[in-house]
Structures are given as C-alpha cells and as structure tokens.
C-alpha cells in the first residue's frame, strides 16, 4: 500500500476520530456517572483535591478530545465526499441515502455537544475553578449551568453514538 493511498489516510483519520471521541465521551461519562454523583459523599475538607487537581486535568483532555473529534470527523466526511450532503441530512442529495441522513444527524448532535463543551461548559467551569474571577453567587450559577450542559451532552451522546454506528455498519 502506497503512503499516498487515499484509503490509508481515510482510515488513519477515522482512527483519529474514534480515539479522540473515546477520550471526549469517556471523560463526559466520567463526570456524569462518577465524579458529580460522588462529590456530595466526599468529606468537605477533601473536595478541593477534586476541584483543584483532578477536575482541571480531566477538563483538559475532555475539551481537546472534543476539538480533535470534531476536526477529524469533518476531515473524514470531506474525504469521503459526503460532508455537505450530511450537513443537509441528505435532503436534496443527488443520491439520497439513509446512511447520509444517519451520519448527518450524528454530526449535528456531535457539533451541538462540541459547542456546549467549548462555549458553555468551559467558561462556567473556569468560574468554578477560579480561573475566571467570580462572586460566590456567580460560582453557584456557573456550577449549575455547566452541570446542566454536561447532562444535556450525556443525553445527546446516546443517540449521537447510535447514528455514528448506524452509518458505519448499516450494510
């Protein structure tokens, strides 16, 4: 196989998309299934260890996982020639296909989730962690907003993954 072989690069980008996606959704589920439900059970004096040491590290891999997943995904869709048709959910495509609609719905759900990470969760988490100055009331509001956006993403991740797997393995 030549190094310039299109399929080799396409497969390489797909691998990058999936490995970044696991990094992203793995952390999302860690926050929602493990960290957040456990926090109230942790003695008050130990909670700063989570907020000051574990949370910033986890958020680093979480947000960059999201960025690389989106980037690799868009490149992959472009390389495979269905980027525009998928964005339009296959509507008006020259050869409409259920796979295009499926990957399109998955792409839109993933993009909404990526937006939530970078423009809702992170700015609010920065207030919670003290990176951005905020009053105690603002910190409480930020914690609630970030938590809700994180729950929205957990909810959307379930149909999003269905669409991704559907599109890849329908035939």
């Amino acid at each position: 196989m030549e190094l310039s072989d299109f399929n080799w690069w396409s497969q390489f980008i797909r691998w990058g998309h999936i490995i970044s996606g696991i990094m992203w959704i793995g952390h999302l589920w860690y926050f929602n299934f493990t960290q957040t439900p456990t926090m109230p059970k942790i003695p008050t004096e130990l909670r700063p260890a989570v907020v000051r040491f574990i949370l910033p590290e986890a958020l680093f891999w979480f947000r960059w996982g999201a960025m690389f997943t989106l980037g690799f995904g868009l490149i992959l869709a472009y390389m495979n020639g269905y980027l525009i048709d998928a964005i339009k959910l296959g509507i008006g495509a020259p050869s409409p296909h259920t796979k295009t609609t499926a990957i399109g719905i998955g792409m839109w759900l993933g993009t909404i989730m990526w937006f939530n990470v970078w423009f809702i969760i992170m700015p609010n988490q920065n207030k919670v962690m003290g990176v951005t100055p905020a009053t105690p009331d603002e910190v409480n509001a930020a914690r609630r907003t970030a938590g809700l956006a994180s729950r929205v993403n957990t909810m959307l991740s379930i149909p999003m993954l269905y669409c991704m797997v559907f599109a890849a393995h329908y035939y």
């Binding site: 929602n32 299934f33 439900p37 259920t98 609609t101 499926a102 719905i105 809700l148 729950r151 929205v152 957990t154 909810m155 959307l156 991740s157 379930i158 149909p159 269905y162 669409c163 559907f166």
Partner: peptide
C-alpha cells in the same frame, strides 16, 4: 427539562427515548 436532567437516570432514559425517535425516523425514510 431541568427536572428531567437533574437526575442521572432521567438523563439516560431521555437519551434512550431520543435514540428510539431517531431510529424510527431512519426506519421511516429508508
């Protein structure tokens, strides 16, 4: 919405319901 997503179980159930909705749409247009 906030009440539903306030619980982890509610979040997961909502995710499964949305998945069924998507699956039905994809089945209908096939």
């Amino acid at each position: 919405m906030e009440k539903l997503l306030g619980s982890l179980a509610g979040t997961v159930i909502a995710g499964f319901v949305l998945t069924v909705v998507v699956a039905v749409i994809l089945h209908a247009i096939h």
